[in-house]
Write a protein that binds this DNA or RNA. Structure first.
Lengths: 340, 340
DNA sequence: TTGTAAGCGTTATCAA
DNA sequence: TTGATAACGCTTACAA
């Protein structure tokens, strides 16, 4: 019943080194103080000879500590999420954790699946980047008992550590910039606000800031990523209504900014010439699109990094009250917000 | 010694349902034909009551079959890799496999780490997207005994299934297009060719195609992503040397195209006006950059999808000869290659 | 300094 | 139909 194709086990190594499993285990865990140099060497050779690698399965089963962190991403296609991921990875590396990335593709079923998977593989904590995730999916998270931290998004009635952008500061900064640049008519385009706190906070700060300038017209409109052509109508209507005024469009996130830029192209409207344009989220092509697009840049890496730091604190037993960390955004000014 | 915080085990369920572990295990594996309806219901209730979830750790340990696939990505920041990932995921979903994504960030150490991790968690196969991976890192792969398929890149002296672009077809298509558009002087900018077969094949096909047109000047130059300013000198020299001719630049991949576009901006050269520009890899912003950038689009999703299909064939015991699948690229023509 | 043996939570074998 | 019981590969008391 030999299965020669299979990997060597700790018993094989023990046999080859003419010793017991215990000593091999000790070797594996670096407990050299209880190993004679001679035995240590025998084990070393046996391991090399058999090309032995310990089974994390068995290890995890036994000790329950895996140094594994799960990251659930709703949409890996989103560059914002990827940046966050990089920040988390950096932190993981420093702390000796390994990151397992799971992309749910915005599907509830996938999220449920991964959540169970991660938990059943004994990850010690989970980071959830819920950008674009539907409420339904989020509720599922509450069932998980694992240490967990949310990125970017709060969930109503679900107390959980959160790390993200200071939306009020950011939207205020962006709106002020447009007004300073002399724009008198502002349109904030957002995905459906619903209970998505990031969107709501951005829109609120937008209106609040604009309301300090009576001569400025400010309105917001909702649209969905799935119906990009809807933007054409939205923007056309706005431009007609506000004809003669210096108009600017502000966009709630990077994914939507891409769609807005495409719509403007279709409409033969040029940002920086026919109207102003400012988008949340810095994109690699922001400077290449026409005269460049002014963006509100999030400290994404930092957000990811601190999210993991917080998670590890929880893993290490921190029982302090839930905390929400908000980081300031930065304005990157380009041609799209300086009308000639 | 009770640990009430911990998850329920199969024994707990068995106890709660007043039965043995075996029956519970049978229930979990859907062997209802050997379970009386009555017992089945008791188990069902016990599971619900305890919110029991089987431990994949223990399962994997026991049966050695996990339905897990590992994906090793050298640079998740690369949109090409993300697209591939999406294709693989789609295939995984269909086939009932779960994908674990590991980003090595182009670090050899990370790759070694993940390779061991995946194998020690009993993934049944690995897909490697080596784009941007250094040779050093690739060698490590050879040690792995798992079923494996490479994306985009071959490794010298390492027989392994590979799925990628038909580089010769693609480069020929692109070069022909430039010549048809009346460009007489072509510069192919590539990352260091070394033994990276994709780059070599593209450059070779480029020269071969151009050589059919005696009036066309064709040259290639190497540069690295880490020294974007080097591009400025490269391009300036080319434009001066070929002054008076209709010049075009072709770029070996999307990441480098981004850098080239930035360099051209710095040099105040406008693609579609001062020179032609064509890049491998379609990017979401290709149409938004100036007059739009002509690209050679890879069927990325398809590549990912077929890579997984091939891997599964191997997992299922396919022992046929190593196979390399090359998919055709498609030209997306935009303003950058039609000089007024 | 070394080794034996009892688990960890499953599944597989075999007997009832 | 059921259910002990022995693995799976590892860690960890506990002995020696």
């Amino acid at each position: 019943m030999n299965r020669p194709a299979n990997r060597a086990t700790i018993s094989d190594v023990a046999k080859a080194a003419k010793t017991g499993k215990t000593s091999v285990s000790r070797y594996l865990n670096g407990e050299f103080n209880v190993l004679s140099p001679e035995l240590r060497q025998r084990i070393e050779q046996a391991i090399a000879a058999l090309n032995y690698r310990p089974s994390q399965m068995a290890r995890g089963l036994k000790r329950g500590r895996t140094r594994l962190i799960g990251l659930i991403i709703a949409d890996i296609t989103n560059p914002y999420s990827v940046d966050i991921l990089c920040g988390i990875e950096a932190a993981c590396r420093e702390q000796g954790f390994t990151l397992l990335v799971c992309n749910t593709n915005n599907e509830v079923e996938q999220e449920r699946h991964y959540l169970e998977l991660l938990s059943s593989y004994q990850v010690e904590g989970i980071v959830v980047n819920a950008v674009g995730m539907r409420e339904e999916a989020l509720n599922m998270l509450q069932q998980s008992l694992l240490p967990m931290v949310l990125i970017d998004r709060k969930i109503a009635e679900f107390d959980c550590d959160m790390v993200g952008l200071d939306n009020t500061q950011a939207a205020t900064l962006a709106t002020s910039h447009l007004i300073e640049q002399g724009f008198e008519s502002l349109l904030f385009i957002t995905e459906p606000m619903g209970v998505v706190n990031t969107r709501v906070e951005r829109v609120n700060a937008f209106h609040h800031t604009a309301s300090g300038f009576p001569h400025v017209h400010a309105e917001h409109q909702e649209t969905t990523l799935s119906q990009p052509q809807h933007l054409d109508a939205l923007i056309t209507a706005f431009m007609q209504q506000q004809a003669g005024k210096r108009c600017a469009v502000m966009v709630v996130n990077g994914a939507l900014t891409l769609q807005v830029a495409r719509a403007l192209r279709r409409l033969h409207l040029h940002w920086g010439i026919d109207l102003g344009l400012l988008g949340f989220d810095e994109l690699e092509w922001s400077e290449l699109a026409g005269v460049g697009i002014t963006t509100l840049k999030q400290p994404t890496r930092q957000i990811g990094y601190h999210a993991l730091a917080q998670l590890i604190r929880r893993i290490d037993g921190d029982r302090n009250a839930i905390c929400q960390q908000a980081f300031a955004g930065e304005l990157v000014v380009r041609g799209s917000t300086s009308l000639a």
